[in-house]
Design a protein around this nucleic acid. Sequence first.
DNA 1: CCGACATAGTGAAGGTGCATCACGAAATGA
DNA 2: TCATTTCGTGATGCACCTTCACTATGTCGG
Lengths: 163, 163
Amino acid sequence: MTSPQKHTEALGRILELVVVLSDDMTRSLAAQGLTDARAHLLWELHHRGPSTQRVLADALRVSPRNITGLVDALVATDFVTREPHPTDRRATLVTFTEHGAAITTAMERDQHEFARILFADMPDDRLAALVDGLDDVLARLRAHGVSIDAARDDTDPESEAGR
Amino acid sequence: MTSPQKHTEALGRILELVVVLSDDMTRSLAAQGLTDARAHLLWELHHRGPSTQRVLADALRVSPRNITGLVDALVATDFVTREPHPTDRRATLVTFTEHGAAITTAMERDQHEFARILFADMPDDRLAALVDGLDDVLARLRAHGVSIDAARDDTDPESEAGR
DNA sequence: CCGACATAGTGAAGGTGCATCACGAAATGA
DNA sequence: TCATTTCGTGATGCACCTTCACTATGTCGG
């Protein structure tokens, strides 16, 4: 019961889902002229409203320098603009253009639609079981520091996201 | 019930899991002196045995040129070597060094261990329900061409023609 | 045996994401 | 006012990935 075999299989399913979903997202984004990183920035901006690059750097957990590059690209493709900060002349406020706002709103809408497609036909109890299971896994991950440690030369967890 | 709200929440769980797992993997890999792409190559090599770069390129779905770069790096860090192909003098056989083989075997072992940690305390029926749910989602994804269809510009009169 | 063509791998060049270091400019605090 | 902190960016550098061009081989139809 609950053989290691089953555990591995379950992890395999999760990993497969990871790969499939990531790929699909990246592809959809590309169709909008966006990359993962740029879309991530847009997403954060959508939830926070006009923000300084510093704030975005912290939110995306990347270096401020990198934000400069991402914003440069988004400005060039007319998704956002750099507005002067009303009180801090050092800072700039990254703000949506109309185009950027429209795209981002549409992305959010489509995400809900996507969720509907995935779960619409699933019985309530089944959906609940799935979510419970996922929560369980998430909790277990957190309990284990999520960082499986991995240090030495012969002890490493996980491989690549390659199914 | 089965409100759109629940659907979105479920998708949120999945996405969170994706992020957490990916981060953890990348971090563990880095501890071994590996990157995602290089580990992926090693993983494939582990399952296929000595392979030509062409085969690896197809397996990883990247350009042959890119494989050259990845193998260069793995050779430099003593994970693999390039051996002459026994019958085709154009090709090279990418082969594990002892170090590479040890690391990869350890990675596989640790993946099973990781699966055990995640699911060991989970009741059988709960685990089964989780796997079933994941399979369901995976199937639904495939059925829908796995394409989110993404947000189209601003032509959003809910023209859900695109699934 | 021999061209015609397909294939394996790599040099060259370029785009994107990311990081660190150094720096100027503006904000802040004592 | 002066030291310190903070914001954003130029300069560099690494990793991943692509396409194009090119060499060395393998293969196949005559």
